[in-house]
Design a protein around this nucleic acid. Structure first.
Length: 861
RNA sequence: GGACCGUUGGCUCAGCGGUAGAGCGCUUCGUUGACAUCGAAGAGGUCACUGGUUCGAUCCCAGUACGGUCCA
């Protein structure tokens, strides 16, 4: 093992790429199912095949990589499994847009050709994000990379579909679903984003004379499909009308007035129009009252089949036209515009979603959701932070059946075949339908296949060694925004497919990355942050450290460029500290000298190192990335660089430096290990140069050493720090430059008497020469430092300094005194606290006395 | 309407029952013996409000106000 010289400056761009290549070539990231080590598994939330690395991925990946690298160093067989999602609608939209440039639609080229084009697109442009993950340093096992549409995962899809179907948990039914008229497909409830939009609320009079009834609607065009008017059964205003028929305007259809509990008598007139084919609530009413379902909107959301002049009109055009016509007929009672109400939009294209009666495939979720809820309730799966679990329960316990069919071409085709007489055959892997059967033309929701991700990627349905070794996964790390989309669905399918074994032990949720003011990033605000740009400018380590440092469990984090620059500065600090260590002979050769043989400064840094190791380990175990990062940062910059190195410089320059050189060697070695999961590149570069070791990736994680814990050393160094700070303050107040050497006399307490030369070195205070005549002094507890400023003491500054100290001491003394005089406090407070307050009282009164004397001795200005 | 979270220095956030912390920003000084991508010294918070519990509350409890997120 030998040390290597380091260049004067750290240039991240020069080292990152080569280091990652080195790690890949060495195969460090490859996990083996044959290993005897305990497994630690994370499956990556598969990014969309057409996606590129955004700041949210950077956060998500950084946290996962920290855990994986940490556990790998701790001796686990760490598997981080990468891959991508085929991204159904999103991907199909990309290729459709491409076709549109040539003036084509997918229908022009046909299904087979279209799907071929999507695959071609994937080959050529897909997977951009994979290279970006390498830049970030993701230590994923590339040999296991998977794609939701690859052969193995497709087999998993067929297998689970058939099993669910055979178990009666997949069914086909005519229901109201969310229909996107632009994507021309059904979408599930959670693929609909609701926003409060400006619309109109139109009150329309149905019928005439005594039997007239007024209903209100925001979607006037749907009235063409009304098949009833409903009122609450207890509503006295309408009791005489229940059971009567009334004429539906414009189409002149006779519809019944019915009574249904569902109607809210407080809302509007208390009477509602019922359109079972175009509203989920109305559909339910229709079922209860055997109403006819009249579909009046086409797949493109145009009016159809009404036999009116509105047929063929777009829904929004028709809305206006119908209101206009009703107005001319004198049927409009009132119009409210704008009327703000919740409107659903397609998550992928923002088109207003149309509730539409349609025949689709569904997963019957009740039994699956019960199991998924129970797994968390009984503690087999833990949600971190636990404060987010109510959100999970609320959703999973009230989950509606999941519409899984999509009228798309890109995706897993539904393995259902229809016979000539309406027979239905579901085919599993390798099975085929009887001749003449026709396959369902729809594909499955993209989340259907990603729900299988934790086990399909490990070889399921085969009982592979990998599946046995790495399932269930250890922890799932993801943003709370996809708790429902993905996490809950993995729970549903994982428990079902794996005989009740949940897909992960822990769900560790993080928040969203926001801008420096905590505002949501959005295109319209123009406040988006590109992680790749920041990596270019400040290095991957800096981006990673900034994200980790902000990552409090389940909470959003703000990000600013200046903070990334600060993290880059931290990397530079480590770089320079390591250069200093090498220059000063720090090393990792041989045994550490016995603790008893070491001075207090060395013992102190070992003690602090030990505390840091314990705390970091504990915090990472709790997914407290922010606090763990904070702890190491503080240890590295403040304790090691600002204090240990400064207080030790004198020792390193002396002939008695060997023991401290070894201590610094150990501390730096361990510190770089602690930081490696978060800042893999710079630590690797430094550690290999410093220790001559092969790689930090496979180095062992530091373990705590209780014998290094040293309260005495901590007290001594605390005293040294206080002396240094007070003298610096004095020098500052007196306008004495840091670089200027001044003579001074130290009168030290017994604890710190051995460290006078260190103090002199740090403070640039020379031994008093002949004729030393102290004109100013500072007292810190038992320690006194005197200076001969040859009568040039700035009395005004000195008086200000002492006056301030006196005020502080008096205030502290006062608060302590109040407690001591409080009988209840003395009687009930714990012994430890009482002692502490007594001590404070004593020190503050000594301070007050001392400062008062000093002030009185100051010459009059 | 339901659920949850937040309200701490200029900004973003930790802390959480015994004298308020960090990063960034700000002020002053400094080309020092690894580091100006730096160092030193500072300024700056009645911890949203009102009650309660307690010897003691930023921290626990209740309520209020304001902000945010998710679901309907």
């Amino acid at each position: 093992m030998s040390q290597r010289e380091l260049p004067a400056a750290f240039v991240s761009a020069d080292v990152e790429g080569p280091l990652y290549d080195k790690w890949l070539a060495a195969g460090y990231f490859t996990a083996s199912a044959e290993s005897s080590k305990e497994p630690f598994t994370i499956v990556i939330p598969p990014p969309n095949v057409n996606g590129s690395l955004h700041i949210g991925h950077a956060l998500d990946h950084t946290l996962q990589d920290i855990l994986i690298r940490w556990k790998r160093m701790k001796g686990f067989e760490a598997l981080w499994l990468p891959g991508m999602d085929h991204a159904g609608i999103a991907m199909q939209n990309v290729v459709e847009k491409q076709l549109a440039l040539q003036g084509l639609t997918r229908h022009d080229i046909g299904r087979e050709e279209f799907v071929k084009k999507v695959w071609e697109w994937k080959q050529e442009y897909g997977g951009q994000i994979l290279g970006q993950m390498k830049r970030l340093g993701d230590s994923v096992d590339w040999s296991r990379e998977r794609f939701t549409m690859d052969e193995g995962l497709s087999r998993a899809v067929l297998t689970i579909f058939k099993r669910l179907y055979d178990a009666g948990l997949i069914y086909r039914a005519e229901r109201i679903i969310n229909w996107c008229p632009r994507c021309m497909t059904a979408i599930s409830d959670i693929e609909v984003d609701h926003s409060d939009d400006e619309g109109e609320l139109i009150s329309i009079r149905y019928g005439d004379g005594d039997s007239a009834i007024v209903v209100a609607t925001t979607r006037a065009e749907t009235m063409l499909g009304d098949t009833a008017v409903a009122v609450h059964p207890d509503d006295a205003r309408y009791s005489h009308l229940i059971g009567k028929m009334i004429a539906l305007p414009l189409v002149n259809r006779q519809i019944p007035i019915i009574a249904d509990e569902h109607v809210d008598p407080e809302f509007g007139t208390g009477a509602v129009k019922v359109t079972p084919a175009h509203d989920p609530n109305d559909f339910e009413i229709g079922l209860r009252h055997n109403l006819e379902n009249i579909v009046v909107l086409s797949a493109q959301a145009q009016i159809e089949n009404t036999g009116t002049e509105f047929d063929g009109m777009d829904r929004f055009v028709a809305r206006k036209a119908i209101v206009e016509k009703l107005r001319t007929e004198g049927r409009i009672v009132s119009e409210k515009r704008p009327y703000i109400h919740a409107v659903g939009h397609c998550q992928r294209c923002e088109t207003t979603v149309e509730p539409r009666l349609s025949k689709q495939w569904f997963v019957k979720v009740a039994p699956l959701a019960k199991a998924a809820g129970d797994a968390v309730r009984d503690g087999r799966v833990r949600i971190e932070p636990s404060s987010l679990s109510p959100r999970y329960f609320e959703w999973i316990d009230n989950m509606h059946d999941w519409c899984i069919s999509r009228q798309l071409w890109w995706g897993h085709r539904i393995p259902v075949w229809y016979g000539p007489n309406g027979e239905i055959v579901v085919t599993g892997p390798g099975e085929s339908a009887p001749a003449g059967y026709i396959q369902d033309s729809d594909v499955l929701d993209t989340w259907f296949s990603s729900a299988l991700w934790p086990f399909s990627t490990l070889g399921w349905p085969d009982e592979t060694e990998s599946l046995k070794k790495f399932y269930p996964t250890s922890v799932l790390v993801t943003g709370y925004d996809i708790l429902f989309f993905w996490v809950a669905r993995m729970m549903l399918f994982g428990l079902f497919a794996m005989d009740g074994v949940p897909p992960f032990h822990v769900i560790a949720l993080h928040g969203m990355v926001r801008d420096k003011f905590g505002k949501k990033m959005s295109k319209s605000r123009g406040n988006g942050i590109d992680p790749l740009e920041f990596m270019d400018r400040y290095g991957s380590d800096a981006v990673r450290f900034t994200l980790a440092r902000g990552a409090n469990p389940g909470a959003d984090l703000a990000l600013a460029e200046e903070w990334v620059a600060g993290a880059r500065n931290f990397a530079t600090k480590l770089w320079n500290a390591t250069r200093f260590a090498i220059m000063n002979g720090a090393n990792v050769e041989g045994e550490l000298p016995s603790v008893e043989s070491l001075g207090a400064i060395d013992r102190w840094i070992l003690s602090r190192l030990n505390e840091t190791i314990v705390e970091v380990d504990d915090l990472l175990e709790k997914f407290e990335f922010a606090r763990a990062s904070e702890i190491v940062y503080h240890f590295a910059w403040d304790d090691l660089c600002d204090w240990y190195l400064e207080l030790s410089k004198e020792t390193f320059a002396s002939s008695d430096s060997a023991k401290s050189q070894r201590v610094l060697g150990l501390v730096l070695d361990q510190l770089l290990r602690l930081l490696h999961p978060t800042m893999p590149f710079v630590t690797e570069e430094l550690w290999t140069a410093f220790t001559g070791g092969e790689s930090l990736v496979i180095a062992s994680w530091p373990t705590s050493n209780p014998s290094h814990q040293d309260e005495e050393a901590k007290k001594i160094v605390a005293q040294l720090q206080e002396v240094v700070t007070e003298v610096r303050r004095f020098r500052n107040d007196q306008g004495i430059k840091t670089s200027q050497r001044i003579p001074g006399r130290f009168t030290l307490s017994s604890e710190v008497s051995n460290y006078e030369s260190s103090l002199r070195y740090v403070l640039r205070v020379d031994q008093p020469a002949e004729g030393f005549s102290p004109g100013a002094s500072i007292e810190i507890g038992q320690v006194k430092v005197e200076f001969d400023l040859s009568g040039t003491v700035d009395v005004v500054a000195e008086r200000a300094r002492l006056t301030k100290d006196l005020a502080t001491a008096r205030k502290d003394h006062e608060t302590a005194l109040v407690k001591i005089n409080n009988e209840n406090f003395m009687a009930k407070a714990p012994e430890k606290v009482v002692i502490e307050i007594r001590e404070r009282l004593a020190t503050t009164s000594a301070d007050i006395e001392r400062i008062t004397v000093q002030l009185s001795q100051l010459p009059q200005a």
